[in-house]
Structure formats: C-alpha cells, structure tokens
C-alpha cells in the first residue's frame, strides 16, 4: 500500500467567468507520498495555482475530494488542517505584513496555533530564524529591511513554525537572483528530511524541478498530461507537451544542449 500524505481524487474546478464556465481543473488525480517532493509544472493558466488553492482549502473543488493522511479534508478546514498545510508564496514582500516585525510575524503563527508555552515562544522564534540561516537579531526588523532571499527564508520559517506536514511552495524562488535561488533551494532540500516535510512545489522552471523534485506532474489546460519520476520524465518524456516544455528551457552547458537536441530529434522521427 502506498503511503500518500495527500491524495487528490478526481478533482475538477469550474469558475464562472461572466456567464460562461471556465474549467480550470478537469478530473485531476494525484498522490503525494509522505516525505516526498512533487513538482507541478505547466504554463500560466494550466491550473497549477487552482490546485494549490484547493489543497490549501481557499476554495472547495467543484467535484472530487482531497484526502489528507487517509481522511477526506472538509470543505471548511479545521484549525488542525490549517496548521498542517502551509503555504510559501512567490513574493515574500506581499505575503509578510509590512508593519509587523519579522519576529512578530513568526510569533503570531505560534500564538494562533498555541505552539509551545508562552514564555518559550521568544526563544522558539530565535531558533526558527537560526534554522533558516538568519541571525536571531533579525526578529526586530521589518520585512522591508531584508533582501528578497532573506524574506523568503522568513516565509519558510513561518511555515516551519506551524510544525506543518505539507508545504505548498508556489514559485518560491522565481523572484530571486540565481545565487540566492541556489541557496534557498539548498535550504528547502535540507529541511525536508530534517523536518519530515512533504512538498508540493509549483513552478514553471523545469531546471529547478529536475534538481529538487522526486516526481513531476505536467499540467496543460487543467489536465495532467504526464506524470512520473523526475529523472524518467526528463530523460524520456512521452507527451509532446512535456517535450515542448523541456525543449524551450534556455540552457548553459553542452550536456544540456545535447539532452534538448535528443528530444527534438525524437520528435522528428
């Protein structure tokens, strides 16, 4: 039996766009194994973020259900559900309250979910900052005083603060410079085994996916067109859409160029 932390079963979502229905997700089923990292890739409008929002309980699916740890998630989430499933967004400047210090933002997560004793929480905040490689003095700073990479670390620390099990990472590094991105990705990949986390990693950057995910699901127009272990999917993509996506990635090494070329020659034969 597989050990799925979250299973998405036949989920569809239809939005009403001024009189006509738009099908954002069309009968999507996915399992995310406990402790693994599933990447969801696709272009804008493919339904990646709709799926994330359904997993997070921001809105319910039109049909189908989401199972968490073997139990169906209710449409109205319990406080426990909300603690267990956390989100890290693309732009940390808009996801952190600009008027609240970093420490206060982290503290709020602890207060809301009643994690630890009141007296301990100040130290817990410092420990959280250290866990994401930020100096504890940052607790008194405002988000505006931090760089993009540092802010993203704070957003990650907040997800950790909740002692979450599943973290939905929605383009967590696409606003960052490449050196900073590499460091944040390193942090994320170290935290996963250490904190026994499961990731749903939403991105359009396939090169990042290749290096961080265990499995990949490729979305196109609300449907999964291909899914499989990362390595297999990159070396032998079966669906033409997947090939097109991989073939469009700008690359820098000769090995990568060779990989891309091998995909396009198969296309022609």
């Amino acid at each position: 039996m597989n050990d799925a932390l979250i299973s998405i079963r036949k989920v569809s979502k239809t939005f009403d766009a001024g009189g006509h229905a738009v099908k954002a997700l069309d009968n999507v089923s996915l399992d995310v194994e406990r402790g693994s990292c599933l990447a969801i890739v696709g272009e804008s409008g493919s339904g990646k973020s709709t799926l994330a929002n359904i997993v997070l309980g921001i809105y319910p699916p039109s049909s189908g259900e989401v199972m968490f740890d073997g139990e169906p998630l209710p449409a109205r989430r319990t406080k426990l559900n909300r603690r267990q499933i956390q989100l890290v967004q693309q732009n940390p400047l808009s996801s952190l309250n600009p008027k609240r210090s970093i420490g206060a933002s982290l503290r709020l997560a602890l207060d809301v979910h009643g994690i630890g004793e009141r007296a301990e929480r100040k130290d817990m905040v410092r420990a959280l900052l250290e866990e994401v490689d930020l100096p504890p003095e940052f607790a008194s700073r405002a988000p505006a005083a931090l760089s993009g990479g540092q802010r993203q670390r704070v957003a990650i620390a907040r997800a950790l603060a909740c002692q979450s099990e599943l973290v939905v990472l929605d383009e967590p590094t696409s606003a960052l410079d490449v050196l900073v991105q590499a460091r944040v990705l390193k942090l994320l990949s170290e935290l996963r085994p250490k904190r026994k986390l499961t990731y749903i990693f939403i991105t359009h950057d396939l090169a990042v996916v290749r290096n961080i995910a265990d499995r990949v699901a490729v979305f196109e127009k609300g449907r999964i067109v291909e899914t499989g272990p990362t390595r297999r999917l990159f070396e032998k993509p079966e669906h033409p859409y997947t090939r097109g996506l991989i073939g469009a990635v700008p690359v820098i090494t000769r090995e990568e160029l060779a990989l891309r070329a091998s995909l396009s020659t198969e296309e022609n034969t």
């Binding site: 290096n211 090494t253 990568e256």
Partner: peptide, 28 residues
C-alpha cells in the same frame, strides 16, 4: 565565456544555475 568562465563571480553564477541534466542543488 560559457565554455571557459574564468572570473570567480562568473563561475559562481554558472554553478548556481540548475541544470536540466540534473546533479542536485549546487553548494554555493
């Protein structure tokens, strides 16, 4: 320049770019 980056900064930049051929997240 891409075949033989010589400046430490250029090298760091190139190492940091995730590769489509895999190899994991690099140490910076």
């Amino acid at each position: 320049l891409f075949d033989d980056p010589r400046h430490p900064y250029t090298r760091a930049l190139m190492t940091a770019v995730p590769r489509l051929t895999g190899g994991g997240v690099p140490d910076i």
